[in-house]
Computed example of a mutant assay.
Amino acid sequence: MSPVYLLLLLLPLVSAQTYRWGPCPTPNVQPNFNVQQYLGRWYEIEKLPASFEKGKCIEANYAMRSDGTIRVLNSQFYKDKVMEVEGTAVVQDPREPAKLGVSFSYFTPYSPYWVLTTNYTSLSVVYSCTDVLRLFHIEFAWILGRSRFLPPETVRYAKNLLTSEGIDLVRMTATDQTGCKDN
Rank of each mutant, 00 (worst) to 15 (best):
Q17P: 02
Y19V: 00
Q177W: 07
P12Y: 08
F136Y: 15
P31D: 09
R95M: 11
V170F: 11
T69A: 08
Y113L: 00
F52M: 03
G179K: 08
R65M: 14
G101Y: 01
D182P: 08
A174Q: 15
N28F: 06
P112M: 06
L135D: 02
P94M: 07
P23Q: 13
N74M: 05
C24R: 00
Y5H: 13
L6M: 14
E96D: 11
T88S: 09
C180P: 04
S164M: 14
L73Q: 11
Y43W: 15
E53C: 05
S2T: 14
I138D: 01
L161N: 06
I45K: 01
G22M: 08
E44S: 04
C57I: 06
S105G: 08
E139D: 12
S51M: 05
D131T: 12
L10S: 07
S105T: 12
S105L: 09
V29E: 09
T118P: 02
A141S: 09
R71L: 15
P23W: 07
Y157E: 15
P94Q: 10
P94H: 06
W114E: 02
Q177S: 08
P31E: 11
R156W: 10
E153P: 12
V4D: 12
L162V: 06
N74Y: 03
E46A: 13
L123I: 15
I45N: 01
C24P: 02
Y5M: 12
E165R: 14
N32S: 13
C129K: 00
V102M: 03
F136G: 02
K159T: 12
Q76M: 10
S66I: 10
K47W: 01
P112R: 09
F77T: 02
C180K: 04
I167H: 01
Q17E: 14
Q36V: 09
Q36A: 13
T108G: 07
Y78G: 01
P49C: 05
N160H: 14
Q17T: 06
E153G: 05
T173W: 07
F104Q: 01
E96W: 08
E165A: 15
Q76S: 09
L144S: 03
Y157R: 15
S103Y: 10
D67Y: 08
